[in-house]
Design a protein around this nucleic acid. Structure first.
Lengths: 154, 154
DNA sequence: TTCTTGACAAGAATAATTCTTATCTAGTAA
DNA sequence: TTACTAGATAAGAATTATTCTTGTCAAGAA
C-alpha cells in the first residue's frame, strides 16, 4: 500500500501530525525513513531502506533505520510484516490489508478481504482478552514461480 | 495443539510413517525432537526444546534441534509459527488452526476458525498463483496482562 | 554383515539486530 | 532570538539467533 509522489506531501503532513500526537519528535531522519517506506510497495527490509536513504542522507546509520522503524511500529504508524525470512519487513499502515507470500521467491503482496475484516471472531477469542488487530497470511506459489519450475515442492 | 501422553505412541507411529513417506530417516534424535514438541502446547523455541531434550539426550546439539525443526517444517510435519519476536517458534502440524498473540506477554494461543478456513479467497488471490495455506494471526492483550496493567499501550 | 548416504556433535562463523557512548538537535521556555 | 534539555543520532562494538564446516556415526538398503 504505497503512496504516489502526487499525494506524498499531504501524506507526510498527516504523518507529522501523528508523530506529534504520539509525542514523537519530528526529525529529518524520521521524515525521510517514513517517506522512503511510503514510496515503496515492496515491503523493504531495514537494510534496503538504509541503502536507499543513504542516497539522500549519506551519513544515516543502519541503527537509526532500525530504531526509527521500531519506534514507528510501536506507535502503530507502520506495520512490521510477519514473514518466513529472518529479516523483518515493513510497510506504512495506511489501509487494512492482508498478505500473500510466495514460498518460492518470498515476494509479499497485499490484498484486501473485507469479509474477514468484518467477520465476528470465534467466542473463545473474544473471551481471551482485548483484540486489536487481525491479519491473514496466505502462502502459495506465485504464477511467475509456477512457470519457472513446473512442480515446486509445497 | 499438543498430544497427551496417552495417544503419544500412536501419534509417534504416524509421525514415523510420515517421515519414511517423505524419505527422511527415522533417528532417535528426530523422534525425540518431535515427541518433545508434541508434548508442549507452548510453541517453544529451538532453545527451549534443546534444554528439555538434553534431559533425555545430554549430548544433543542445539544445531541438531535447529536442523531437525527446519527439516520437519520443510516437509510440513511441523509449523514454524510467525511471531513478533526474533526467535522462531514451532508446533506440530496436527490440525488446522490460527494464532492469538498477546502483544504484552508474547504468549501464543491456538484457536480454530472454520468459517475462514472454508471461506472463498478473493478472486485477485486465486489469480495470483497456487494457494497452499492460509493463517490468521490475531493480536491483542490477554486477560492476565489486562488485569496486571490496567491500560497497556496498544 | 557390509556399505552408502544422510544425520549428528562440536565449535567456528555469519547475519540481523541492539547496545554504548559521545554528540547533536527539536521543541520549549525565557 | 537565544539558551536549555530531553530525546534522537552516528559510529562502532556487542549480542543473539541461526547456520556452516568438518570429522564421525548410524539408519536402512543390499
Amino acid at each position: 500500500m504505497p503512496t504516489t509522489p502526487q499525494n506524498m506531501e499531504e501524506h507526510l503532513a498527516l504523518f507529522e501530525q501523528a508523530c506529534r500526537a504520539a509525542g514523537l519528535r519530528v526529525t529529518h531522519q524520521r521524515l525521510q525513513v517514513y517517506r522512503q517506506l511510503a514510496l515503496l510497495d515492496t515491503h523493504p527490509t531495514a537494510e534496503i531502506l538504509h541503502q536507499e536513504l543513504r542516497k539522500k542522507i549519506p551519513t544515516i546509520s543502519l541503527d537509526t533505520v532500525y530504531r526509527t522503524l521500531a519506534t514507528f511500529a510501536a506507535h502503530g504508524l507502520i506495520n512490521k510484516v510477519e514473514t518466513i525470512e529472518s529479516q523483518a519487513r515493513f510497510e506504512v499502515a495506511l489501509m487494512r490489508h492482508h498478505h500473500l507470500i510466495c514460498s518460492s521467491c518470498k515476494t509479499i503482496m497485499d490484498f484486501q478481504w473485507q469479509s474477514v475484516d468484518d467477520a465476528l471472531l470465534p467466542s473463545e477469542v473474544s473471551a481471551w482478552g482485548r483484540i486489536d488487530t487481525r491479519s491473514v497470511v496466505v502462502y502459495g506459489i506465485c504464477h511467475t514461480c509456477l512457470q519457472q519450475t513446473p512442480l515446486p515442492g509445497k
